[in-house]
Amino acid sequence: AVDLAAQPGPLSGEGLKPTPLRDVTHYNNFYEFGLEKTDPAERSGDFHPRPWTVRVEGMVAKPRTYDIDALLGRKLEERIYRMRCVEAWSMVIPWIGFALRDLLAEVEPLGSAKYVAFESVVRPSEMPGQGGVLPVLDWPYVEGLRLDEAMHPLTILAVGLYGQTLPNQNGAPVRLVVPWKYGFKGIKSIVRIRLTDRQPRTSWNVRAPDEYGFYANVNPAVDHPRWSQASERPIGAGGGFFGASRQLTLPFNGYGEQVAGLYAGMDLRRDF
């Protein structure tokens, strides 16, 4: 990991205490490296996040291929965001990155573009979870946002955390962070961003459409079929069993004031 210079971002949450670095980097889901939360840290050593390019294309006036060095050389901000996993645990992570909207503005989306589709890298030789006996997900991992969600100032492409470039296990070299959505929307190790007029397929929605919706907004009122989403276990409080009890999950993960307007008039029980 290399140190990154970043300005504190004005959109960081107030009064959030970041989860310890050790937990952020050693307890997470990244199925390309395995199913256990400890797999990404243990099994991502062979992954090469450089050289790397991100292709931005589709319904844009100026399609471009960005080199990772160009992305790292941009004006970077630190954003301290809540992260709520669909499995009902949560963290607070000090990301470093830049607003996705700034990148999209450079490629000039056409008026016909309505959605943004994202695609992860496929490298079975470096990502042991992409092999395996049982098919877990269809690779590449794909995700998508509505264009207005992608253009929202809270939506960032992260290239680092805790003041350094992203560790392999957290989605190096560049990943999406959408703090009001469940963590699985934050697609990692992105190689392609495509603007389109059709709602993109998303990996978990394809896998289990009744459990994971396209929107995947954090919503304590809409349960996962197998567990309640009303509360969450904060990770990294220390103290073992008695360190931290569950805390209530906030609508839009606490970002409702900024983003609820995006969904005005929608039935969020149906479009979950």
Binding site: K37, I235, G240, F241, G243
Partner: peptide, 16 residues
């Protein structure tokens, strides 16, 4: 014992 003394990983209750 591991869980009560914070040696059961990041999400001790779930692991237990």
């Amino acid at each position: 014992v591991l869980g009560a003394t914070n040696r059961l990983g990041a999400d001790p209750v779930n692991t237990f």
